[in-house]
Nucleic acid binder design. Structure first.
Length: 530
RNA sequence: GGGCUCGUAGCUCAGUCAGGCAGAGCGUCUGGCUUUUAACCAGACGGCCUAGGGUUCAAAUCCCUACGAGCCCGCCA
């Protein structure tokens, strides 16, 4: 297809038909670690926002943290002491680590930091502050007045009949601090107060300002109007018929007289083959973990390359390498106006830090250097890469190191063994002879480059070479008649250094190791007969 | 039971809105790079577009049905 329009631009075009001024909103409840799945919502919104700006729209981007939602249960990552906080708004619960202002800030703060890294800069609102400031007061009054109409909408669209004592407003109990245990008994529109009884036995009166919260199905449409939201992505959990977008759409039109925002429904992110990512099942990769491992652009790219309504299969092990590879390749293409370059634009995050070293290559450099940064720099320099941007190389090396620690499959890992690997006992006579002759030559030679090592290994099969001659002499064979398989020689090297049959490109790999070490190791291996 | 979304090469996905020759990357294979296993370059292989029906001069694309996957319908992001 010659002309592919990125989905974000399609969305922008669609949205622009409705007007030039837009406010893109997104909201996540900080009830637990905010993971890659949640990130899809924010990145989706950000990309739509950027596309709107690029098309000349007057656009804003806001993020509402639902800090006023009650804690639903004691999550697996919480200790039992949190049982008494179940039902209280997240903003009113103590922080699990004691270092943040509240429970919600504990989870929100790292998320906001991650947003910065991802180049996402929304205006951040906290729901508890909005309620306490009175932003929702009008909406609360309307909702209380039109309680029956709202109940009828919910009944009609979702098929569920709200209980007789149902109210769109959930008061916050003065005594126990819970928000989901109270019942509304009455209200005073002039005084802006609501009367309640609580299952804890308390009864009293709370202000509409900060004394409670609209139930979710009403809170959402009320927020659209109060904040002027015109575009909002949301997970498919809200998207089914009778779901909260459906009822919200009706409530905002019929109760609040406001047009619902343009919907962008997005699918879940599946983790490897463990299923959908979700905090409650514990199938979670947190954003900060991911940022330890890959640059933010790659994370954005992961989300941007797939249309929102398709699910994304995400696997932080081997497939992550392919993703990075693909991104790096894309990055090198320079074809302005193409679909590919549009994706690069949309992947753009905060302060670009670029090196020309591929992630994949760094995984071998890193391991050859045993993770030591000075040695990494030496290898990088010898390999001919640009070493001016030391900080970026350090970032890349850190990412790679974390990836190797956290996610790398075993076949991608190797380590230079401190002791001669026992596998050396399986070496053939030919291989042993090769290793010892190879070591002898190393003793007499100066510094060898990667290519020198490479050629030296192959020279074993060249009758005119010194290596070949030495091997023939040692084996008592005639020079021209000895047949040497380079493949087996490579194996001998890998076995004696790594204890495995294969490894990274032999030439530069050997050149990244100390020559004295190689001589010693090859001689040990050649003579190893347990 | 009702609903939403998805199903395209071995894998990950574009292309479906607006019908017009079936696409990309990865993997695999072959060749090249002075002889490389996990660098690089070139090429090839690879498809009943989940299945069946319908509309059309023409369908991966639109309509209906079935199957498969995931999720929602419990006021629970």
């Amino acid at each position: 297809m010659a002309d592919i329009t990125h989905w974000a631009d399609v969305v922008a075009d669609e949205v622009l038909k409705k007007g030039k001024k837009h406010r893109v909103a997104t909201g996540i409840t900080p009830s637990g670690h905010i993971h890659i799945g949640n990130m899809r919502e924010v990145v989706t919104a950000d990309v739509a926002y950027r596309a709107l700006l690029d098309r000349g729209a007057e656009a804003e981007f806001i993020y509402i943290a639902d800090t006023y939602d009650p804690l639903r249960k004691v999550y697996p990552f919480l200790d039992e002491s949190y049982a008494r906080h179940v039902g209280k708004p997240l903003s009113e619960i103590p922080c699990p680590c004691g270092e943040h202002k509240s429970y919600s800030e504990h989870f929100l703060e790292p998320f906001l930091v991650a947003l910065e890294h991802l180049g996402i800069h929304p205006t951040v609102y906290r729901a508890d502050e909005l309620y306490k400031k009175g932003l929702y007061t009008d909406a609360i009054k309307t909702a209380l007045k039109k309680r029956d109409e709202i109940a009828a909408i919910l009944q009609k669209l979702s098929g569920k009949t709200p209980a007789d004592d149902w109210s769109p407003f959930n008061p916050l109990c003065n005594a126990c601090g819970k928000i989901n245990t109270t019942r509304v008994n009455g209200y005073d529109l002039d005084a802006e107060t609501v009367d309640y009884t609580c299952s804890c036995g308390d009864r009293g009166t709370v202000p509409m300002k900060g004394g409670g919260k609209l139930t979710w199905r009403v809170d959402w449409p009320a927020r659209w109007k109060a904040l002027g939201v015109t575009v909002e992505p949301y997970g498919k959990d809200h998207a089914s018929r009778g779901g909260s977008y459906d009822t919200g759409q009706a409530i905002t039109k019929e109760i609040y007289g406001y047009e619902p925002p343009f919907p962008i429904v997005y699918e879940w992110i599946m983790l490897g083959n463990e299923g959908a990512m979700s905090s409650s099942t514990g199938v979670v990769v947190s954003i900060s973990d991911m940022l330890k491992v890959v640059p933010p652009e790659v994370l954005r790219y992961l989300i941007i390359r797939t249309k929102p309504e398709k699910h994304i299969r995400f696997d932080p092990a081997q497939p992550l390498l392919n993703l990075v590879d693909e991104f790096e390749r894309l990055h090198q293409m320079d074809d302005p106006g193409s679909y590919e370059s549009r994706m690069i634009e949309l992947s753009h995050a905060a302060g670009l830090c670029h090196t020309d070293i591929p992630f994949k290559h760094m995984t071998t450099i890193y391991q050859a250097a045993g993770g030591d940064f000075e040695r990494i720099m030496n290898i990088v320099e010898r390999a001919g890469y640009d070493t001016k941007n030391r900080k970026c190389i350090k970032e890349l090396a850190d990412n790679v190191g974390n990836w190797l620690d956290m996610y790398a499959p075993t076949f991608a890992k190797f380590s230079v063994r401190d002791e001669l690997p026992v596998q050396a006992s399986s070496l053939s006579d030919m291989q042993r002879t090769f290793l010892s002759s190879f070591a002898d030559i190393l003793v007499d030679s100066g510094e060898l480059s990667g290519e020198d090592y490479h050629n030296l290994v192959y020279s074993a099969n060249d009758p005119a070479s010194e290596l070949h001659a030495r091997m023939a002499a040692a084996l008592g064979a005639k020079s021209g008649e000895m047949k040497v398989e380079p493949k087996d020689m490579f194996k001998a090297i890998y076995i004696s250094v790594l204890g495995q049959q294969s490894g990274p490109k032999a030439g530069w790999f050997l050149s990244s190791l100390e020559k004295d070490f190689l001589i010693r190791r090859f001689r040990d291996a050649a003579g190893y007969r347990p």
